[in-house]
Design a protein around this nucleic acid. Structure first.
Lengths: 203, 203
DNA sequence: GGGGTCATGTAATAGGTTACATGATTCT
DNA sequence: AGAATCATGTAACCTATTACATGACCCC
């Protein structure tokens, strides 16, 4: 079970399986549910991709076309239901996701790995602007969270927002510290070789 | 400059532009450089993708085929050089990356948003296993870092590893706290509705 | 001199995103 | 009645990953 490549890899697929656990649905219903429950903030969602993923899941035997109903004159809707294999796949997949950390490639890591290509004083400016954005994001995430709690949503269903907050706090602290280490007047990296290398380059 | 969709989106492209800043190179050389400098840990690297990206950069006018040399009887190598537009693109792109936080979709966030679909006692097990992996990752990242510092690599070139460490620490703390909140004997989420919902389900 | 693996790339396939289409409902 | 938006999906187009190919060099 250790990362035997899954038939369907897109995490939207896991969300679909998880929702179908409750009851059969048609794709548009899934789409709406995902959007309404705010899962689209946690799993990259895209109208087109949803239909693609549903197709993949069906081909893989995790879901089956259950009926093709027609409500009034609306276009036909194909309702899908979970199969036994689908039920097993969702359990196994979700377990794996909780258990195994994945090596990922956040954009900021890429930025950091190349940051010496910019002159240090400019980097400090950019980091300060980032800090503003980060604190803004943090605030709105927190507001969101508070509002949900106010509406009696159980914190278990908000745990991903708490995680996000924790990560934002950590990044904010890191960026502050990075700025200090560049600008420290006695041992700051910003003077010396790094600056010299970018002599007279600041556009 | 606020996210006017870039002609080339893959971050490998930024790495290529950044390396070509030093001198013209052919793709294989780039490939090797990326691998050797450990940038492949920060930017998703893939032999095939590199050639693709180089093609895209060329089509976009950011780099040009400079010469087609032949060294001994080795296959032909096409050497690429940065254009003025390419130089501008790399500066602008890297700046944007440092300044603007991106909304991303880490796997663990997806897992958390769906975790209530597993029974709480099982979640605790899985989280504990995750904790083991995380501390293992942390240790090896730290070892790596220490070794590089021992080889007199300037910390500026390791700042992305420090970021990774900070994020790992934050995640470790979060997971510990999450476990506590599930298992807390007086107000733990693990008893009550969540458990009841998964009555007799533990496989 | 045969088996790896280094060097160098191209081609086939699968995956994902954007754009297009179309009838129904609702708003003004 | 026309405009916007909901509901529902398909198709075209990019992007990215995997597989295939081939000659040199290196080791035993």
């Amino acid at each position: 079970m250790v990362t035997t490549k899954r038939k369907v890899g897109n995490l939207l697929g896991l969300a679909v399986l998880s929702y179908l656990l409750m009851r059969p649905m048609h794709p548009y219903e899934l789409s709406k549910a995902l959007r309404d429950n705010g899962d689209a903030r946690s799993i990259k969602f895209n109208h087109g991709s949803l239909y693609m993923v549903v197709g993949q899941l069906a081909k893989a035997g995790f879901i089956t076309e259950q009926e093709t109903s027609r409500d009034g004159a609306r276009p036909e809707r194909t309702v899908y239901a979970l199969t036994e294999a689908g039920r097993a796949e969702q359990r196994d997949w979700l377990r794996e996701l909780v258990e195994l950390p994945e090596h990922e490639y956040p954009h900021f890591v890429a930025a950091l790995s190349l940051v010496s290509a910019l002159p240090p004083d400019e980097v400090v400016d950019l980091l300060n602007r980032r800090l503003d954005r980060l604190t803004g994001d943090r605030r709105s995430t927190q507001d969101n969270y508070d509002e949900a709690v106010g509406n009696d949503v159980h914190p278990l269903f908000l745990v991903e927002e708490e995680y996000r907050l924790a990560m934002l706090d950590a990044e904010i602290a890191f960026v502050r510290r990075f700025i200090e280490r560049i600008t420290d007047p006695v041992a700051g990296w910003g003077a010396g070789l790094w600056a010299a290398f970018h002599e007279g380059e600041r556009s």
